[in-house]
């Protein structure tokens, strides 16, 4: 079986003999001989045209889209409560509570969606709005600051400080895995202890703790168990691969 040689007059390249046009420039290929083209095996099989899929959003576009949907979703109950309050009372009264809660939720959700890779901004975005929220709630009551400085701010400070310690500790520690979950539990237990202490001091004026001891005991036991799992049992088990850091 002899193969006819075919060339593109514009590109100067040899093309496959069955080609009617040059694959590079589209120029018609003139066959040199008037013979019938020799049989050939297609280099690749024919298959149905590839279905065109919808063009997807980029990750950033997805996050902004989610943020937009969440914002609009939160705006709906906000406007409903505001208008109901205005219609019934002719002024804004009780609706300030749900409105401020919805605004807080909006801030808490927006920060990770809009600034997912700026850690300091994330930290501020998740700790500052709750403090402002507590201040606003306190002021809504009678326009005065009553419990915010004694209760709200200290609780917020305890949460922020313990969260910072857990985050930094988790970053610094080697061999990450279930120990991180343990740190989070310990942190939660300590936060409860702090809340209990602050609330008792405010309500009864005494220094001490009550219910938080139960929480702390539970978190300490479960956290300790997780540490045990991490440092003793996880070696050479399937958990190791699932929780590798």
């Amino acid at each position: 079986m002899t193969e006819n040689k075919a060339f593109c007059s514009r590109c100067g390249v040899e093309v496959e003999p069955h080609k009617a046009t040059c694959p590079l420039c589209g120029t018609s290929i003139q066959q040199t001989e008037e013979e019938e083209p020799t049989s050939y095996v297609k280099k690749y099989p024919d298959e149905p045209a590839v279905k065109t899929e919808k063009t997807g959003r980029t990750a950033k576009q997805k996050r902004i889209f989610i943020w937009e949907v969440v914002s609009v979703t939160l705006l709906i109950p906000l406007l409903i409560t505001l208008f109901v309050d205005l219609i019934v009372n002719k002024t804004v009264t009780w609706s300030l509570y749900p409105i401020s809660s919805l605004i807080l939720a909006w801030f808490l959700i927006s920060t990770p969606l809009l600034f997912p890779n700026i850690l300091p901004l994330l930290y501020i975005g998740e700790t500052l709005p709750p403090a402002i929220f507590l201040l606003v709630i306190d002021k809504i009551e009678d326009g005065q600051i009553n419990w915010f400085l004694d209760v709200g701010l200290p609780i917020e400070a305890v949460v922020a400080v313990i969260a910072a310690i857990v985050i930094i500790g988790s970053i610094k520690i080697k061999n990450k895995g279930m120990n991180i979950a343990a740190f989070i539990l310990f942190g939660a237990g300590l936060i409860c202890l702090g809340i209990d202490f602050i609330v008792l001091k405010h309500t009864r004026g005494t220094f001490g703790v009550s219910w938080s001891l139960y929480v702390l005991t539970s978190t300490a036991v479960i956290g300790g168990f997780l540490l045990y799992l991490h440092y003793r049992l996880m070696k050479n088990t399937k958990l190791q691969r699932k929780l590798q850091i």
């Binding site: 390249v13 040899e14 093309v15 496959e16 590079l24 280099k43």
Partner: peptide, 16 residues
């Protein structure tokens, strides 16, 4: 490929 041809190289083109 035109540049290669211009430089005196014999090029054969195949496609899918």
């Amino acid at each position: 490929f035109r540049k290669l041809v211009k430089d005196g190289i014999k090029v054969r083109i195949e496609t899918n």
